[in-house]
Amino acid sequence: MTLSIRIIPCLDVANGRVVKGVNFINLIDAGDPVEMANFYYNEGADEITFLDISASNGERATTIKIVEQTAAQVFIPLTVGGGIRSVSDVDRLLRAGADKVSVNTAALERPNLINEIAEKFGSQVLVLSVDTRSRADGAGYEVTTHGGRKTAKIDALNWIKEAITRGVGEILLNSMDADGTKTGFDIKMIKKVREIAEVPIIVSGGAGRVSDFTDAVKVGANALLAASVFHFGEIRIADVKIAMKNAGYPTRQIQSNP
């Protein structure tokens, strides 16, 4: 009788296609986000996240269709992030079948976007996605944009605190230092964020081994998000769940979906 640790695969989508890090052998079309979401649903994923990295509004319209098709067959929570700039963007996605949305750059540019979304739909639909990096002078963590290439000149912990006060219901913590390294999640930073965040924390960036997942839970992660290790079949969701169970952390039992 305890809340399970969630394991969340993330799919980067542009113009209706999964765009990177995909190398499935069992799928007919590894670039089809609907098919991949379905695959992960059957693999025992606890949620699915789509990150829309489309370059144009025209491409983004395609994402709505993908969300609709996914929601028709995948009966677990679906979070969509990328390019969300207004309450009407959120409304469109929720109506299409998304359960949660994540905001990042647009909220940095106009923090009141958080209040507007939370007031209209409730905090439970809103995830703050934060791309963090250790400051060059070693004084904590800063928020970055453009995939870690630019600094937003804001302290990450302050921004997270502010966003929670404004109404986000969950934090997606992406470590730009750990991302792609496969040397584990950013344990130090997770600890710091856990101290100040009274909402669930999803951690992302750096997963390489199953023990990385349990290490992050040990310091307070409530959910773990990964992309390439799952897409390349290096780690299966079931492997993570077994490791969790062995470490004494609760996970949802995987049942076969109809």
């Binding site: 009788m1 305890t2 809340l3 399970s4 606890d46 009274e198 669930p200 409530n222 959910a223 949802r252």
Partner: peptide, 13 residues
């Protein structure tokens, strides 16, 4: 509970 919302999978008696 310290952490809210209660978000995720939980068992039911």
């Amino acid at each position: 509970n310290e952490i809210l919302p209660h978000m995720g999978w939980n068992s039911v008696q």
